[in-house]
């Protein structure tokens, strides 16, 4: 049986190892993809010609890994995918980020990446939704849109020549986030999918899965796709909508489910979130007990079963 202590073992790095060993038993041994370490030579003998992908470099005509991880081969392209690296932005990614500073005509946003991203004044919708040139006055009023410390949902618009990221929030679904809970997980656990704004009606919450590993959970709002109610016609009001104790509990349950999945290193998808929350409700687990050993064991065995079915 699994060896998780009954106390809180949430910090332990061994959790991933426990989960992995459990899944290994189901799939019958080693993963199909070979794992390489930094500096290992990647075999390219069977291939006629290869293209150097991410996480590799060519030394004396041989392909050498520069990060440790799984080797991925797509046609001629050979790359090494690591699970622990910082977030690398791709065009069109939905992100959750925090405004760090205002400088000139732009906000600097911390997106958990190598550098802070830039959100230009011209890349946001003005309060009131009017379309016009940005004036010097708009520049002075930038703090009425986003302040330092605000959490925002946004999308990657483009890249600058030096690789830094330009964001935009030119859609009603993007904008300032409030009245919810933020959970941070490893960005490799969140795959790019069709929808990142996910209404989970069965749980009564809306979730924004930021590709950079930041996940935002709010009480479910009927009709609206999810969150970001701020970009509408009325200017920013600081009146918080009333949230019932039941809704708060639902948000906490979902957030704790995300934390538990993150600690175990299990991919986060709408299905895994829902399954984990349902399991906790079925087992009658208290909110605070969701991060403790016994329930983590439940998640592991549930995930094991799910993989066996597939």
């Amino acid at each position: 049986m699994l060896s998780l202590a009954s106390g809180s073992v949430f910090d332990s790095a061994d959790l991933v190892a426990v989960a992995a060993s459990s899944f290994d038993q189901t799939s019958g041994g080693a993963p199909e993809t070979p794992v390489v370490c930094v500096g290992d030579t990647i075999a390219t003998d069977g291939q006629e010609g290869f293209l150097r992908g991410h996480g590799t470099q060519i030394v004396d005509g041989e392909l050498v890994a520069t990060v440790s991880g799984a080797v991925e081969r797509i046609n001629k392209l050979v790359s090494v995918r690591t699970l622990k690296s910082r977030y690398t932005a791709e065009l069109g990614d939905v992100l959750v980020g925090r405004v760090r500073e205002i400088s000139g005509k732009r906000w600097k946003v911390d997106i958990n990446g190598r550098q802070e991203a830039v959100l230009q004044l011209s890349a946001v919708n003005l309060p009131g939704g009017i379309q016009r040139r940005r004036t010097a006055e708009d520049e002075l009023n930038m703090r009425s849109v986003f302040q330092e410390g605000d959490l925002i949902s946004t999308e990657v618009q483009s890249f600058f020549a030096d690789g830094s990221v330009a964001l935009h929030t030119r859609s009603t679904k993007y904008g300032k986030l409030k009245g919810g809970q933020l959970v941070t997980v490893a960005c490799s656990l969140i795959r790019r999918q069709k929808q990142h704004f996910i209404p989970l009606e069965s749980l009564g919450v809306d979730v924004i899965l930021g590709c950079n590993g930041l996940v935002w959970v709010t009480p479910h709002v009927a009709g609206a796709p999810a969150a970001a109610a701020d970009q509408t016609s009325e200017p920013d009001t600081d009146v918080e909508p009333s949230v019932s104790a039941k809704q708060r509990a639902a948000v906490c349950r979902t957030a704790n489910a995300l934390r538990a999945l993150g600690a175990l290193g299990i991919s986060i998808t709408p299905a895994t979130i829902e399954d984990t929350c349902k399991a906790s409700i079925d087992a009658g687990v208290q909110l605070h007990a969701m991060l403790e050993g016994p329930f983590l064991e439940v998640i592991i065995s549930q995930e094991t079963q799910r993989r066996q079915r597939q």
Partner: peptide, 18 residues
Amino acid sequence: RKALASSEEQALAAMRIE
């Protein structure tokens, strides 16, 4: 190398999704 590869293998096995 051995320590790094085994830690990476575990993380991969945990998050693998079909």
